[in-house]
Amino acid sequence: MSLHHVRRGNGSPLLLVHGLGAGLRSWDPIIDALAAHREVIAVDLPGFGQTAPLTGEVSIATLADSVERFIDDQGLDGVATAGQSMGGRIVLELARRGIGGDTVSLAPGGFWTERELAAFGYTLRPSIALVRALRGALPTLLSNPVSRTALLAQLSAHPWSLSRQTALPDLLGLVDAPATDAAMGALTKGPKQKGAPAGTVPGRVTIGWGRRDLVTVPRQARRAVEAFPGATLHWFPRCGHFPQWDAPSEAVELILASTH
């Protein structure tokens, strides 16, 4: 399967892997800033954006397989990677497999307790259902700071300050992507993320976490670092689940400083 992708900028390549939502457009708030310094390759995972869904099982492993094949097909051996949420987990899985180079993982899933995983499913599934029910009104609702805050309170630490265009692509992606439900199943019913022994990953691993993340809660960060010994943990102080929304400049600085 070929992954739809875009390339921007020049320099050392950097591969971006999105989470649930808009596909590669989830990186819109920071892709231009990254591309001012690097050649940025952003992909649509299977069933998101303009990439067709997988024909078989949807799991973190099979989604990572698709990115691994893309890296091979594009001649990107040793490419630095950055991912957010589900994409943050996928780039860690690639690093665990020895694929890629330096890795930046923002708010990855897979490091939860059973109780935290249950809370993740019980809260996010109704939120997705609500967004689906409100799909036609989303542009209007996101234009008003009060309704925007109500819609995005689970995802952003300061939703009232975001622009409509920052969040709209991801919310529409949750509604429209054919793989949303299957990917949610992979996250909530599949295995937790495996770690990697010290010295077995191909480059540096940096894990970024929002202090106010209500989706992958901050206490999971310690488990992620323990699973990848030697990883550097970066805290985003005033940030929810989407660093590219809440702290775009800081996210750009972290990715650029942590990869080469």
Rank of each mutant, 00 (worst) to 15 (best):
E68V: 01
E68K: 06
E68C: 10
E68Y: 00
E68Q: 14
E68M: 04
R69L: 14
R69T: 14
R69G: 02
R69Y: 04
F70L: 11
F70V: 10
F70I: 08
I71H: 03
I71C: 08
I71Y: 01
I71L: 11
I71D: 00
D72Y: 07
D72R: 15
D72H: 14
D72E: 15
D73V: 13
D73R: 15
D73M: 09
D73F: 02
D73N: 14
D73K: 12
Q74S: 14
Q74A: 15
Q74K: 12
G75S: 12
G75W: 12
G75R: 12
L76G: 08
L76Y: 08
L76P: 04
D77M: 02
G78K: 07
G78H: 08
G78D: 10
V79M: 02
V79S: 03
A80V: 03
A80K: 01
T81L: 14
T81W: 02
T81N: 00
T81D: 00
T81F: 02
A82R: 06
G83V: 05
G83T: 09
G83C: 13
G83P: 12
Q84H: 15
Q84W: 11
S85F: 11
S85Q: 09
S85R: 06
S85K: 10
S85Y: 09
M86W: 03
M86Q: 14
M86F: 12
G87P: 11
G87S: 12
G87F: 04
G87C: 11
G88H: 06
R89A: 14
I90P: 02
I90A: 01
I90E: 04
V91N: 06
L92M: 12
L92Y: 02
L92N: 05
L92Q: 04
E93N: 11
E93C: 01
E93G: 00
E93D: 15
L94K: 03
L94F: 08
L94C: 10
A95V: 03
A95K: 04
A95C: 07
R96M: 05
R96S: 08
R96T: 02
R96W: 04
R97G: 11
R97H: 09
G98C: 11
I99D: 03
I99F: 03
G100Y: 04
G100R: 01
G100D: 10
G101Y: 04
G101I: 03
D102N: 15
D102L: 05
D102A: 13
T103K: 02
T103S: 11
T103F: 02
V104G: 06
V104C: 10
V104T: 07
S105Q: 05
S105L: 09
S105A: 15
S105M: 09
L106Q: 12
L106C: 07
L106T: 07
L106K: 07
L106Y: 08
A107P: 00
P108D: 08
P108L: 10
P108I: 06
G109P: 09
G109T: 13
G109H: 00
G109V: 13
G110C: 07
G110T: 01
G110A: 06
F111D: 00
F111E: 00
